[in-house]
Nucleic acid binder design. Structure first.
Length: 269
DNA sequence: ATGGTAGTTCGACTA
């Protein structure tokens, strides 16, 4: 069977609900990992997504964070939060939800930003990635197709940001963050590297400020890592930068874009 | 040029 799996940081699902549902209808993914819902569980637009044929596993946290797995292939063994997920300020945040969708098991992940190298949030980010590695290592070794998808807030290589000189000493490009991703891969996951639909590097994020998208000042920080049964089934993968394009002048606010673009993988399972 | 934009608990904080 053909299965289309996507990950998308929507930066608030309700303010841009028509942008999201429009993309779901046109791209027609079977499984979608969403991040930055920025809503409470009650505010999650369950019915609008059900109308499009999606069941949803939701880990909403209110004002910040929030992740979900949408599936047209069924939804089983939902896991809220990573086993062993570290806390920040005494709370386990809404950054991880796992689910089995028909033949594939996925996690939707929103890795902590880190704020500044050396900040407590940066240490939290590194701990979080280590907790993820431990969880992923178990499922990665199985025969079932398995992937972790989401906003990792790490650019794996220098070319994955628009100007590495501007990121000197910054988070997202530091050696420890990149090492954490390499360690994740060593646990049995390979990156599903997407095609760019324009330009050389398939950036997934462009800051709203300073015409970031228009000038292609982007970053490649949203990723898909799959185990061998998953990556062997991948036929194509791409970043849908059109979904990041600003709306037309008279478009309603609900059509405003996220600052991230979806990453899409097509599998034959 | 230390700015700019957008989301949230309406306004300081996060990204």
């Amino acid at each position: 069977m053909s299965v289309r799996i996507a990950t998308w940081n929507v930066n608030g699902i309700n303010p841009r609900i028509d942008r999201v549902t429009g993309w779901l209808q046109s791209a027609a993914p079977d499984v979608v990992c969403l991040q930055e819902l920025k809503c409470t569980p009650e505010q999650f637009p369950q019915e609008k997504l059900a109308e499009l044929g999606y069941e949803a596993a939701v880990r909403a946290g209110g004002r910040w964070n929030g992740v979900a797995v949408l599936s047209k292939l069924g939804l089983e063994d939902v896991t809220i939060d990573l086993p062993g997920q570290p806390e920040f300020d005494g709370a386990v945040e809404a950054r991880a939800v796992g689910a089995t969708c028909g033949p594939v098991r996925v996690w939707s992940l929103y890795v902590p930003n880190g704020r500044e190298v050396g900040h407590a949030h940066y240490e939290y980010k590194l701990q979080w990635l280590e907790a993820l590695r431990q969880v992923a290592a178990e499922d990665a070794s199985g025969a079932r197709p398995f992937a972790v998808l989401g906003d990792f807030n790490v650019a794996p290589k220098d070319e994955d940001v628009w100007d590495i000189a501007k990121f000197d000493g910054a988070t997202h490009v530091s050696e420890l963050e990149r090492t954490a991703l390499i360690e994740l891969q060593k646990s049995g996951l390979d990156e599903v590297y997407p095609r760019a639909l324009k330009y050389d590097i398939p950036f997934t994020f462009w800051d709203y400020r300073m015409l970031g998208f228009q000038k292609n000042k982007g970053m490649r920080i949203d990723h898909i890592y799959g185990n061998a049964p998953f990556t062997a089934a991948v036929k194509d993968a791409y970043v849908d930068r059109e979904a990041r394009r600003p709306g037309k002048k008279d478009a309603p606010p609900s059509m405003a874009p996220s600052d991230h673009a979806p990453v899409v993988a097509d599998l034959e399972l």
